[in-house]
C-alpha cells in the first residue's frame, strides 16, 4: 500500500514533468511561428552578418558565442550544409556572447568585418578556440597573437573595436536573443522554427524539411 503510493507518486511526477515539457515545447514552437510572421526582423537584423544568397529559401539563423565550444563544433557542419545546397541556404549570424569576456571577441569579429575579413576571422577563432579560451574565460591577449594569420591590420582593428555601432549590435542581438528565448548557444532557427531537440541530426532534419518545402521536387 505504502509502496504503491510511493511508486504512483514517482510516476505522476515523471509524467507531469514529461507532459509539462512537451506542452511547453509545443507552445514555444507556436509562439515562434507566430513571431516569425509578425516580426521577422527579430531573427534577421540589417546589421547581421550573412552568408549565402539573399533570395535563399532557407534562412538559418544562428545565435552564437565565439567562445562557445559547441558553436565551434557545429561550424564545419553548417558549412557543409551550405556547400551541399548552393544558393539555397543563407546563414545569418547573431551574437549571444554569454561567456565572460566574449563580447570583446565579438568586437574583434565586427572590426574584422570592417576590413572585409569577417568569415575568415570567425573560422580562425572557431578553429583555434582552445588556444584563446581557458576554463570558459576569454584570453584576449591570445586572440591578438592569432589574428595576423588572416591578414588583419591590427592597428586599425584596435581602433575599430571601440566603434559604438558594435556596442549597438551586441545590445540588439542580446535583446533579440531574450525575445526569442535563446538562453544557450548555439541557438538555431531554421526559417523561424527553433531547433528542438538540440543536436546535429535534428538540425539536419529541420534544414532538409525546410529545403524540401522551399524547393519541391
Amino acid at each position: 500500500m505504502k509502496r504503491n503510493l510511493f511508486i504512483v507518486t514517482c510516476l505522476i511526477l515523471i509524467l507531469g514533468f514529461w507532459f509539462g515539457a512537451s506542452q511547453l515545447k509545443k507552445q514555444r514552437a507556436e509562439k515562434l511561428g507566430f513571431l516569425a510572421q509578425e516580426r521577422a526582423s527579430t531573427f534577421v537584423r540589417p546589421h547581421s552578418p550573412a552568408l549565402g544568397a539573399e533570395d535563399a529559401g532557407v534562412y538559418l539563423v544562428e545565435f552564437t558565442d565565439p567562445a562557445c565550444e559547441t558553436c565551434a563544433a557545429f561550424s564545419p557542419f553548417v558549412k557543409q550544409f551550405m556547400d551541399r545546397n548552393p544558393g539555397k541556404i543563407r546563414l545569418v549570424i547573431r551574437y549571444a556572447p554569454f561567456h565572460e569576456g566574449s563580447s570583446d571577441v565579438v568586437r574583434v569579429l565586427e572590426a574584422a568585418r570592417m576590413q572585409g575579413k569577417y568569415w575568415e576571422t570567425l573560422d580562425l577563432l572557431y578553429r583555434s578556440q582552445n588556444m584563446w579560451t581557458q576554463h570558459h574565460q576569454v584570453r584576449l591577449d591570445q586572440v591578438w597573437r592569432l589574428l595576423p594569420a588572416v591578414g588583419l591590420d591590427l592597428e586599425r582593428l584596435r581602433a575599430d573595436m571601440r566603434d559604438p555601432s558594435i556596442t549597438a549590435i551586441i545590445g540588439q542581438d542580446l535583446a533579440d536573443a531574450e525575445t526569442l528565448g535563446v538562453r544557450l548557444t548555439p541557438g538555431f532557427f531554421v526559417n523561424g522554427t527553433p531547433l528542438e531537440p538540440f543536436g546535429l541530426e535534428p538540425l539536419a532534419a529541420l534544414i532538409n524539411a525546410e529545403l524540401s518545402e522551399a524547393y519541391p521536387g
Partner: peptide, 29 residues
C-alpha cells in the same frame, strides 16, 4: 510519522523536479 516523512519526501521530489524543469526545459541557468 510515515505520512509526515512521505510529505517531506514529496516536497523534495516536487522541488527537485521543478528545479530541473526550470533549468532543462525552460532553459533558465
Amino acid at each position: 510519522d510515515w505520512i509526515l516523512l512521505f510529505a517531506a519526501w514529496l516536497i523534495t521530489a516536487v522541488a527537485t523536479a521543478g528545479s530541473l524543469f526550470f533549468s532543462y526545459v525552460m532553459g533558465f541557468a
